[in-house]
Structures are given as C-alpha cells and as structure tokens.
C-alpha cells in the first residue's frame, strides 16, 4: 500500500490539457535556441571577432580614420533629422487614423505601408527621378543652386521615406485599441487640446511610441539600399556608415569594414539595451497600462 503511494509520488504530475509533453517542450526550445544562435548570435559574434582580429588599436584606427568619422557623423546627422520628423508625422497619421472616420482612410493606411512593401532601391530612384539633374525638378533646382541628390537632403529624404511606417504602424493598433474615452473625459473636465495631448494621450502611447522611435532609429542608421541610390558614394562627404562598410569591403579591407560594421551593430545593441532598461525601470507602470 505504502509502496504504491511512493510510486505515485515519484511519477511526474499529470499534464494539463495545454501542456506539451516534456520532450516536445525540450525539442521546441532547442530548435528555437539553435536557430537564434545560428542566424542571429553567430553573425553578430563574427562581426565583433573579425573587427578585433588585428587588435583593439586597429579597430579604433579604422573608426577614427577621417572618412569613417565623416560617415559616422553623416549617419548620426541623417538619423537625427529624419527620426524626429517621422516621430511627428507618425503621431499625426496614427492620430487621424485611430480617432477619425474619413474618406480615403483605407488608402492612407495602405500608403503608410508602401515603404515596407516597396524595394528600397526603388524608393531611392523615386527621388533621383524627381530631384536628379534630369528629373522633374532637376533643372529648377540647378538654376537655384539647390543640391538634393548626392547630398544630405537626398539622404534624409530617402531615410524618411524608408523609415516612415515604423512609428505610425506601432501606434495605430495601440491607439485603436485604447479608444478615445479618456480623451473625452479630459475634454469634459475642461482640458484644452494641447493639455489632452500632453497629459492624457502621450502618457498612454509613450511606450509604443518609444518602441516605434527605436525601431525607426535603428533602421535610419542602418538603411543601405535607398540611401545608396541617392548618396553618390562620395567618400568623406556623402557616405553613410553602411555605405562606408561596403566600400571598405569591396576594397578587401576586411578588418576595417568589420570595425565600422561592429560600431553599427553596437549602436543597434545600445538601442535595444536602452529599451530594455527603460522597460525594466518602469515595469510596474507598464503592467498597469497593459492590464487596463
């Protein structure tokens, strides 16, 4: 009798209906980890190993070299201009899509997705066709001595185009789900439009907004295709970091290429770490927002 009881205790607990068996679970976890390791972690490691393969000194030399510095500066500048603009446009677009009913709303939603569905090369070419020397506005721009293509404005335009959907896409479902009752409550309580935005709407969407901005920023710094078409690849002038990496790579300057690439990857990692840190810091508040 007592032996039976012990036997029963030794057996694994009965599985609930939604539990997979232990082996299925292990297999699934193993596959997921292996996939992550092979396709995400390994390449990242390779980048850093290759970058430091000739020592830290070489790595820093490759980064502080004037052309590389110029590329870093240009990349940061382009991101610093395009991310705030997309933040603004994204909030506006999400606001009117989530809050108002109007004709052409479906078209607007489709248009927001356009940069995702279109090849970045085509996005670049659009600007060449419009602002290039033989483009629609080319002659007028030349007569007025305004340079867009093969200059900073072109790079910024291409970056804005490519990264436009991130903020809006992140906010639209969030704002639709949250609805506008809190804003209505604020109106009745006497708040002005600006007060409602700063004190009610923004706190409600700030995490989604932050996530959208971080993604937008990561893509803005890393964009290659569209920027490649409009930049003109002038070393030290219109080369962004990704373009600089490509040039170094094509010159068989592997270690230097990987050094700049490592820096680019590092920027992405810092972005992710910042997001995680913020989430951790405000975890209680975040949970409160989600449960509601």
């Amino acid at each position: 009798m007592s032996a039976d009881v012990f036997d029963a205790a030794a057996r694994p607990l009965p599985l609930s209906a939604v539990d997979e068996s232990r082996w299925t679970r292990r297999l699934l976890i193993a596959v997921a980890l292996a996939f992550m390791g092979l396709f995400l972690l390994a390449p990242l490691l390779v980048v850093f190993i290759e970058a430091f393969s000739r020592g830290a000194g070489f790595f820093f030399d490759a980064i502080v070299e004037p052309d590389a510095l110029a590329a870093i500066q240009l990349t940061l500048l382009a991101a610093a201009i395009s991310v705030p603009l997309n933040l603004f446009f994204g909030v506006c677009a999400a606001w009117c899509i989530a809050r108002f009913e109007f004709k052409g709303k479906g078209l607007l939603i489709t248009l927001i997705d356009l940069p995702f569905s279109i090849s970045p090369v085509v996005s670049g070419l659009i600007y060449v066709l419009m602002f290039g020397l033989h483009g629609w506005f080319g002659p007028w721009l030349r007569d007025n001595d305004i340079q867009i293509i093969f200059a900073l404005p072109g790079i910024v335009l291409a970056t804005i185009f490519v990264t436009f959907p991130f903020v809006a896409r992140e906010l639209i479902p969030l704002m639709q789900e949250q609805g506008g009752e809190e804003e209505e409550a604020a109106v009745v309580l006497g708040a002005s439009a600006l007060q409602i935005f700063w004190r009610v709407t923004l706190p409600k969407i700030k995490w989604g907004l932050l996530y959208g901005v971080l993604l937008c920023n990561a893509r803005a710094m890393g964009e290659f295709g569209a920027v490649s078409v409009v930049s003109g690849h002038i070393r030290g002038e219109t080369n962004t970091m990704p373009l600089h990496v490509e040039i170094l790579y094509n010159e068989y300057n592997m270690t230097a290429a990987f050094s700049v690439a490592a820096l680019l990857a590092l920027l992405a990692l810092v972005t992710l770490a910042a997001k995680s840190a913020l989430e951790w810091r405000f975890s209680a508040e975040l949970a409160a927002l989600k449960k509601h």
Binding site: E182, A185, V187, V188, L189, S192, P203, E285
Partner: peptide, 20 residues
C-alpha cells in the same frame, strides 16, 4: 465647447486616466 459646459460625465467604463 464641451469643456465650458460645466458638466460632470461618468463614463460606462469609467475612462479613468490609467497612468495617473
């Protein structure tokens, strides 16, 4: 304007400001 009507409104799902 609704904000100047001097009306108190209690919403069905309360609409409390969740971050406050």
């Amino acid at each position: 304007h609704p904000r100047d009507r001097g009306v108190g409104f209690v919403f069905q799902h309360y609409a409390l400001f969740r971050h406050m």
